[in-house]
Amino acid sequence: MISNRLFIRLLAFAALVAVIAAIFWSQNPAFLSGGNIRALMRHMSVQGLAALGLTFVIVVRHFDLSFPGVASMGAMTLGWLIASGAPFPAAIAGALAVGLVFGLVNGIAVARFGLPDIVTTIATGGLAVGFSYFYSNGTSISQNFFMSGILDLNDKRIIGLDMPFAILMAAAGVAAVVLHASRVGAGMYATGQNRVSARFAGIATRRLIVLAFALCGTMACLAITLLVASSGAANVTAGGQLLMPAFAAVYLGAALFGRPSVGATLAGTLMMSTMLNGFTLLAIPYYYSDAIVSTVLIAAIAIFDPRLSGLLNFRKAAA
């Protein structure tokens, strides 16, 4: 029964993506060319990693509004380390460490000290943006980028896949194991459902919430590392473009598949990236595509809301 419903949802999702793709293809046949699909997958990699991190926080029923700011600081840390001559694995480790530290701070503040999540993450995100200006007074950093090998992160291919997409797939694989095939993931869902009963069931809820925030921060910085690698420069505003697509991907996926999960987030990201890529290809200015994407998000949340879809089922049963 449950797998049957999942199958229907998958079918509906595939049909939706096919319709969207067909519309873009009819407008510009280049949409389905190999080059464009690779561009789409690259775009999806950055957005998908940030959204995957956010998924953990949403699963434990919290919010994180700090990851765009944290990602900006991660980007600047990465740029500064590369510009000052650090080997690029160390630079990437530095960027990820920024995300980890901010994630831990968020998680401990929320889970251990009981601070409200939205306020706390707005404040830490603001702090991170402030710190990101320290490296270069706000100018973008791109010295040493060609020599350091970080651009390989964008250009290299591995088993036929572009490196960014391979990284996304690897991260998604690990995330899927953690969230759907381990006690940690089961504990996170239980924490999100009912914190008190989860704690009485012997789940270390606080530790799981801290872990969720830590993963969110770290993965946002991983996402921004890929973005920096593809643009070849680190910017203080780099993270700003992550907030809306990440929330949209997680909620779109959760709306399509009934609850937030790794698969749902990937599906949401695929849909968002397909639309954004298509609009770019048709040379539609960003402000129109933003408007369409946010409308789609509102519509998806409204239409797939359990009470509304319950209403539809009821009608079907009555008919």
Partner: peptide, 9 residues
């Protein structure tokens, strides 16, 4: 977040 993005765009 979504309506804000809509208004901004």
């Amino acid at each position: 977040i979504a309506t804000g993005a809509l208004a901004a765009s």
